[in-house]
Amino acid sequence: MSKVTSILLSGVGGQGAVLISKILTNGFVGAGYDVKQSENHGMSQRGGCVTTQVRFGDKVYGPLFGKGQADIMIALERMEAVRCADMLKPDAVVIVNDYRQDSSLTASGLAEYPEGCVEAMQENFNTVVLNAEEIATSLGNIRCANVVLLGAACAACKELNQSGIDWESVIAATVPPKHKELNIQAFRAGMAAAAQ
């Protein structure tokens, strides 16, 4: 079987994983790959975890993958990185947003938000850590944090940066024209952060 690359996006409803997966799939489709994408819809609008899976290769069968199968993870929230750690291959590349979003349990004091999420990922995986919200805010709009993370992933993962895809033009073609400049800057800032 030819090589299939499996990417996992994990975060909390409303964080913007949808745009990341849209840019990724647009890039892969444009480059002529077979692509499948799956997301867990469900009750995400109501504060739950959201995961999206994107797979590309010459021929992709499963729209879904299971534990120990992801090559790349982009975690939009640090506790969600830990939650999905068992989905990763041991040599996976992980991009972790060092950002905390409370769950209703931790917000109301019924449970403690866990310490050491980022460190646990760093100890076990090839991990890139950045604070995408901080970077996005410095660019003038916190909402482009998702594209900052995508930039970091494209810098850190050979499957993405050696795919022959010009990610900046894919972004330009995917986002609304008025957000184009901002998102390209966010992408570049993410790449730079990952290179440090």
Binding site: V12, G47, G48, C49, K67, G68, M79, E80, V82, R83, A85, D86, M87, L88, P90, S103, S104, L105, T106, A111, E112, Y113, P114, E115, G116, C117, A120, M121, E123, N124, F125
Partner: peptide
Amino acid sequence: TKTVPVKPVGR
């Protein structure tokens, strides 16, 4: 797979 030593809280 690898197990990480931190336990996530439910959402």
